[in-house]
Structure formats: C-alpha cells, structure tokens
Amino acid sequence: MKLGTTLFLKIAVILIAIPVLALCIFLLPKFGDFAAELYPDIAYIKYLFFFVFYGSAIPFYIALYQALKLLGYIDKNEAFSELSVSVLNKIKYCAITISGLYVLGLPLFYLIAQKVDPPGVPAIGVIIIFASMVIAVFAAVLQRLLKEAIAIKSENDLTV
C-alpha cells in the first residue's frame, strides 16, 4: 500500500485522544471534588471516582496506541501477520478492562445520580460499558478472522 493511505484514520485516532486527555486534565478533578462535596461523610469517594476514570483512561490510551500500530502495519503491508493478531488481542483486553472498571463504577454513578437527580447519569456508565464490550467483541471477531486468513495465506504460500 502507499504510505499514508491510513492517514485519515491515524488523524481520527489522535483527534479522539485529545478531548479525552483534556477531560482527564481539566474536568475530572472538578468532578472528583464535586463528588466529595456531595458525600462528605464518604471521604474516599473522590479517590474511587479517580480510580474509575483515570484507571479507564490508561487502557483507553493503550488501545489507541495499539490502533496506531495496527494502522502502521497496514501501511507496511504487514496486516496479515501475527503482529496484527497480537495488536487486536491487546485492544480486546483493553476494552474488557475499561468495561470492567465502569461496571465497578456503576454504584458510584448511582450515588451521584441520587444527589444530583439527572436521570441520565447511570445511563452514561451503561453506555460506556456497552460500547467497550462491542469493541471487545469486534476485536475478537477480527482477530479470529485474521488468524484464519493467515492460515489460508500460509497454505497458499506452501502450495505455490
């Protein structure tokens, strides 16, 4: 493939990363302080809040980095290799980790929704869990298909 055919996708990955980074730097500390003000009797709620959100940001950025690596493999005509299978496996586990952290954080969403009273706060957590599980399943399906394509390609290489 020509170098740069995946340039649009690489730019999209970077543009996804920037707002999440801004959210982590500017808004999450304020949300943590807000949660601590809502429940002053639960002193550690701020740290639970940070654990869920900053903890999910780490696998999110790992998955974005792995996506950039996969796009690099596609540019180098190494898409049908074990390297791509490994990248998809890491993306799958990152998505499962994000989903697991938000499952642990659902009671936190529920507590905040009780005090603030917007009906959509717990739904945000459920949407993130669902979206990350969809990504995990999609990565698992792509991983399996890629393994089968690699097996077919190696059989054809042996035949010729």
Rank of each mutant, 00 (worst) to 15 (best):
L15D: 09
V20A: 13
D33G: 14
E78S: 10
A36H: 02
V13D: 02
V20Y: 04
G72T: 11
C94E: 03
N89C: 11
P59R: 03
K92T: 12
L101K: 00
L23T: 09
S81K: 09
I45W: 03
E82W: 13
Y61G: 00
A113D: 13
Y54G: 00
V13E: 04
F80V: 15
V13H: 04
I112L: 13
A79M: 12
A95T: 07
I18V: 13
C94F: 04
F109L: 06
L48F: 13
L38E: 10
L28G: 02
F60C: 08
L70V: 04
I14Q: 07
I74S: 10
V52A: 01
S86Q: 15
I42Q: 10
Y54C: 00
V20R: 04
I16G: 12
I45G: 01
L88M: 01
A63S: 11
I11H: 12
L88E: 01
A36G: 05
V87Y: 08
F109W: 06
I58E: 03
P59G: 05
F109D: 03
I112A: 00
V13L: 08
I91K: 08
V13T: 06
K30I: 07
F53W: 09
K76G: 15
F34H: 10
L28E: 03
F26L: 12
F60Q: 05
Y61T: 00
P107Q: 06
V52W: 00
C24D: 06
L38T: 02
V13S: 05
P29F: 00
I96Q: 10
A63M: 03
L68C: 06
G32C: 04
L48Q: 10
S81W: 04
F49P: 02
P59F: 01
V13Y: 10
I96E: 10
L21D: 03
K76Y: 14
C24T: 07
L28A: 06
S81V: 05
A79N: 07
V13N: 09
L70I: 12
Y44L: 12
Y47H: 13
N89K: 15
A43I: 15
A113C: 10
V87W: 08
A79I: 13
L101F: 04
C24K: 02
F50N: 09
F53D: 02
L28H: 05
I16R: 08
L64D: 01
I42S: 08
I18F: 02
Y39C: 10
L71S: 09
Y73E: 15
A43K: 15
F49Y: 08
Y73K: 11
I112E: 08
F26W: 15
C94S: 05
K90W: 07
A67F: 12
I42N: 13
C94N: 10
K30Q: 14
E37I: 09
G100M: 03
L108Q: 02
K30G: 09
L23V: 08
F34L: 10
V85L: 08
L23I: 08
I98F: 03
K76M: 13
G32R: 00
F50H: 11
I91S: 00
I58A: 11
A79Q: 07
F51M: 08
L104Y: 02
K76F: 14
K10L: 08
L70R: 06
I25C: 02
L88V: 06
D41S: 12
E82Y: 14
P29Q: 04
D75W: 01
Y39M: 11
I11R: 11
A35I: 07
Y93V: 13
F49Q: 00
A36T: 07
